[in-house]
Amino acid sequence: MPLPSVTPDWAFEREHWRRGFFRVAGVDEAGRGAWAGPVTVAAVILPGLAQEYPFRDSKQLSAAQREEFAAEVRRVALTFAVEHAWPEEIDRLNILGATHAAAARALARLDPSPQALITDYLKLRTDLPLLAPPKADALSYSVAAASLLAKTERDRLMRELDEQHPGYGFAGHKGYGAPGHRAALRELGVSAIHRRSYAPIRALLEQPQGLFEQPLFDPSLSNEMK
């Protein structure tokens, strides 16, 4: 698969650098829309050298490219951390609250600590200077690097969960609402790693005959399942 035409740059990082904040952490998540498994958040501080990297938005890359570039992120990063919010926390806090909590844990593990942040439209509650432009994972090297770590680490976990909870196909659809996932839920019921607060899962628990009356697969999520 060729690299996507949109190339990240350092424009958002430079906004922080001009203000004297040189340790800029990119933050991104994977799995917010999934019905099962964790939401995974990564935070990455790259060296402030303004050099070019092959990093891209993880959704626009093949699985092999993601693994290759994620390894490069881990090699060159000044510091990085990955944290998960599991279904119990998601059900308790809601998905946005759980994503914020996982992001806070990841940021707290960075050493050295960040002086400023860039996220992909995730408006974190923080005292640090924050830029949260939409599609930052395609525009900022730091956020693209975080997206690679979040996606590859979550995919690894979903492959493990596929072995622990066979029959659902987690290794393939990664917990998203694919047709095969819906069929497995009809046959096997809800597992321990499903998000019970999510409407499709809640509907299955409350009204077993009503879950599949309407099409629930969102084609826009297909890139995240790859």
Rank of each mutant, 00 (worst) to 15 (best):
4 P>F: 05
12 F>A: 11
16 H>P: 02
16 H>M: 01
20 G>K: 00
23 R>H: 11
23 R>F: 14
27 V>T: 05
29 E>G: 03
31 G>Y: 06
35 W>Q: 01
47 P>G: 07
48 G>R: 12
49 L>F: 02
59 K>T: 10
61 L>S: 02
63 A>M: 08
63 A>I: 09
65 Q>N: 11
66 R>C: 07
66 R>H: 10
69 F>I: 00
72 E>V: 02
75 R>Y: 09
76 V>W: 04
80 F>A: 02
81 A>K: 02
84 H>S: 08
87 P>R: 13
88 E>Q: 14
90 I>C: 08
95 I>L: 07
96 L>R: 15
98 A>S: 15
101 A>D: 10
101 A>C: 12
102 A>K: 01
102 A>S: 04
108 A>T: 04
109 R>E: 15
112 P>F: 05
114 P>E: 05
115 Q>V: 04
120 D>W: 05
121 Y>R: 15
122 L>I: 14
122 L>V: 13
123 K>L: 13
123 K>Y: 04
123 K>F: 10
125 R>V: 12
126 T>C: 05
127 D>L: 12
130 L>W: 11
134 P>S: 09
140 S>A: 11
143 V>W: 00
148 L>F: 13
151 K>P: 00
153 E>Y: 06
161 L>K: 00
161 L>Y: 12
165 H>A: 02
165 H>S: 02
167 G>A: 06
169 G>R: 00
171 A>K: 03
174 K>N: 00
179 P>M: 09
183 A>Y: 01
193 I>W: 12
193 I>S: 07
194 H>E: 12
197 S>P: 11
199 A>W: 14
199 A>Q: 15
200 P>Q: 05
200 P>W: 02
219 P>N: 09
220 S>Q: 11
221 L>R: 06
223 N>L: 14
223 N>S: 13
224 E>Y: 09
224 E>F: 03
225 M>C: 13
